[in-house]
Design a protein around this nucleic acid. Structure first.
Lengths: 254, 254
DNA sequence: ATTGACCTTCACGTTGCGTAAAGGTGTAAA
DNA sequence: TTTACACCTTTACGCAACGTGAAGGTCAAT
């Protein structure tokens, strides 16, 4: 099915201006332009628009949505986790605000007195949030050049922070890896299980999996001291052991 | 306590640019300007800024906030109680949004090994689920109880709606009052209609109505020059006329 | 006397579009 | 065939609510 700009707009409930804007910012380009210069959209574009609108409903800004749906290395899970935290933050702030209102009511009724500082309790948190956003942006801008690099940096950030599912998986890898290390057999069942879990963990950050990339990352764990430090924290040699296990798991070697 | 622009900004968690902007759009003017042209804010401005931020948190545009808090009928105490309820509503809505994001994350993580095409399907499914949720919501709005189904937009519409009806009512009162004034009869039909409209208008702001309070307010229109100025703007004597009409309407006198 | 942290007023940039303006295209009815 | 009318195009300014300089004055301390 093919759609002109207005037909698609009607279908999706957005204005033609919006679609032209999406074309302009390269987040949704028409399938083709006909002989009269009309934008013609196809099935694929319909689906993509649905995706865009879905993320928009979750409150993500368009530039982030664009990254999510255009870049194979930018993972929706990471963006969503970040977004989730922002929302949780906002809820906390709301709670503080509600407490503030309660206090202000009490103060107005003469039950208590409020200092000027107390009057703004609950508003102030916004500043911190903004700074966090800025900081995050700076990091992204700094490491955004290399797609792979960005991904690794993200991984590192995630390692240092504590992110729910990823953390759990990471812990599991850790436990199993520790046990596997005792067997000293990177081809053994435990080590291979660790490699498999590692793959799963990795795919939280990479949309596409390739054995080569996995093997390459494993090698990096040995070469890059930040990663080595992380894995060897409890038992020296763990990074190397994991690399070997992964190389066997993937059947690749760099 | 007096504050320079930065001090107030720090106190309230807003930028100096914001405060200058608020000055520019006349929503929050400094108490005075010192000899060097610096903006100096006082206690009253601190409270006013707090009010502004409350309304801002609820998502109201600044021009409407301005109208609301500059209105001579603005009641800070009532506003605070409304704030409280609306903030609670907003938190509920936030919770729903968070649940939504959680769902999406869960769905994504459950389909880690899917191809791009399959992921697409996953999103589509999400969209369908989403729509079902929305549809269910609509049904609940129709048949369910009031408390459960208030979305952010609803809250906003409520505030805006209230404000709109209030404005319209006020205009109607104005017109009818002007006509009634020509009859010079505060007990006449027109004047009594004005008094009735005024009661309706009043009940948008007061949770409880009492004839005594209404009559008291009418007297205040005459005693407080801010109100007198407002009502006598076009025809001097209007405030007094309205007071008389209301006193007859309520059968009370202060 | 000179930092350095304040303050001031321009004035342009940002996001996600809305809203003309000025003009070309497609088709159905007069 | 003309004409009407609903489409489409690009260009470009407008909006809110500020962010972010630039260019310069003020104040307190060194």
């Amino acid at each position: 099915m093919e759609y002109t700009i207005q037909k698609l707009g009607l279908l999706a409930g957005v204005s033609t201006r919006t679609l032209r804007y999406y074309d302009e910012i390269e987040i949704l380009k028409p399938a083709r332009i006909n002989s009269s210069g009309y934008r013609i959209y196809g099935e694929e574009e319909v689906n993509r628009l649905q995706q865009i609108l879905f993320y928009k409903e979750l409150g993500l800004p368009l530039d982030q949505i664009k990254e999510i749906i255009t870049s194979p290395t930018f993972n929706a899970a990471v963006a969503l986790h970040e977004h989730r935290e922002k929302l949780l933050n906002k809820r906390e702030q709301l709670d503080r605000l509600i407490a503030n209102v309660d206090q202000t009511i009490a103060a107005n009724e003469g039950r208590i007195t409020m200092t000027d500082k107390e009057k703004f309790e609950g508003f102030k948190q916004q500043m911190v949030e903004e700074n966090e956003q800025k900081y995050g942006k700076e990091i992204r801008e700094k490491y955004g050049d290399h797609a792979v690099n960005q991904s690794n940096e993200k991984v590192l950030n995630m390692i240092q922070g504590e992110h729910d599912t990823a953390t759990k998986l990471a812990e599991e890898i850790h436990t199993i890896l520790a046990k596997a290390l005792e067997t000293s057999d990177p081809a053994g069942e435990l080590a291979q299980k660790a490699a498999d879990l590692h793959k799963q963990w990795l795919m939280l950050y990479w949309n596409e999996y390739s054995k080569e990339a996995h093997a390459g990352l494993a090698q990096m764990y040995v070469d890059d001291e930040r990663f080595t430090a992380y894995y060897d924290k409890e038992q020296p040699g763990t990074a190397k052991f994991l690399r070997d296990a992964i190389h066997i798991y993937t059947g690749k070697r760099n």
